[in-house]
Nucleic acid binder design. Sequence first.
DNA 1: CTGGGGTAAATTATGACGCC
DNA 2: GGCGTCATAATTTACCCCAG
Length: 332
Amino acid sequence: MAAPLRGFRLRRAGSAQKFGVAAGSLRGLLRKGCRLLQVPLAGSRLCLYEDGTELSEGFFRTLPPQTELVLLGAGESWQGCVSDVERLLAAFHSQQDAVVKAAQKLLSDEQAPRRQKLLADLIHNLQENIAAEDRQEDSKWFEGLESRFKNKSSYMRYSCESRIRSYMKEVNNFISNVHPTARDAYKRIIDLMSDKLKSAKYNGCYFDRREEEAVRLCTTEGWFSCQGPFDRDDCPCKHSINPYSNKESRILFSTWNLDHIIEKKRTVVPELAEAVKTRDGREVNWEYFYQLLFTIDNLKLVHIACHKKTGHNLSCDKTKIYRKRKQTHEIS
DNA sequence: CTGGGGTAAATTATGACGCC
DNA sequence: GGCGTCATAATTTACCCCAG
């Protein structure tokens, strides 16, 4: 059941030359348009010439024939043909590019490290695109990332999830060190923790700027501040970073650590194993250990300079290792 | 054939420890 | 004091598997 063909007027973002193309679906129109205008299909989209609205399959079906469209390649964008604000922004953008180019030219001949750094930082700061969220708005940000990542927030979310997942993996790996008689009980706790983690989506919310303020570690713009060494309340150096701003910041952010205040490997996991081994009829308060391992109750986001790798010499709260006895629980 | 999930190996930095 | 080795902390990368 092929949909009837309808004609449209296509052009590239930079050109006034228009082409007539007929298709019955958005996919078909994209395919034909890309072939005709010699644009790689991957990452290409169509939007209204009028105001830049991007076409979805559903929206496409509502369009009258001969609608004026712009065919965008990966990373290109079209803001629409009219708005004064858009013109102003476009003008500003082209100026900014000129400034960046000039700075880059100066930088290429610069020998003195200090001036090199100043220029590089300037370029770096001008090339931010913090507001952009989707791949097509800021394709540079996504360079080197797998194609499945469609917007910045979901990638940042993913990167947080994988960090947290690796903590769970470490709890798993510790099984071999758990006393044989305690292994089954330890495994049961692993299962409980895994389920809770899954339902919490591996706490990916920490890095996701779209999340509610209460659960994210950044501002709505994506700014993260270093929370300082594990044994201080603040960061003496006032480190901050916005991994959403550009590729370099994104990569740099991966050197920031989620530091366990009470250390995971040296303390929390061994103490959990010990608690399981010597529980002696009591019920291990696995949710306390969950907090210590996977939540910001015990995690600090720190710049690498504030990440002390020395022993923290902290131990778990002994009063929280086991559940209160059943009786007291039932009375309350 | 892509997206989602998982994992093993590689990478980088640093502290701890013993030895000469 | 300097050196090699091992352990620890944290992440990235490439790769595999499975479902739709």
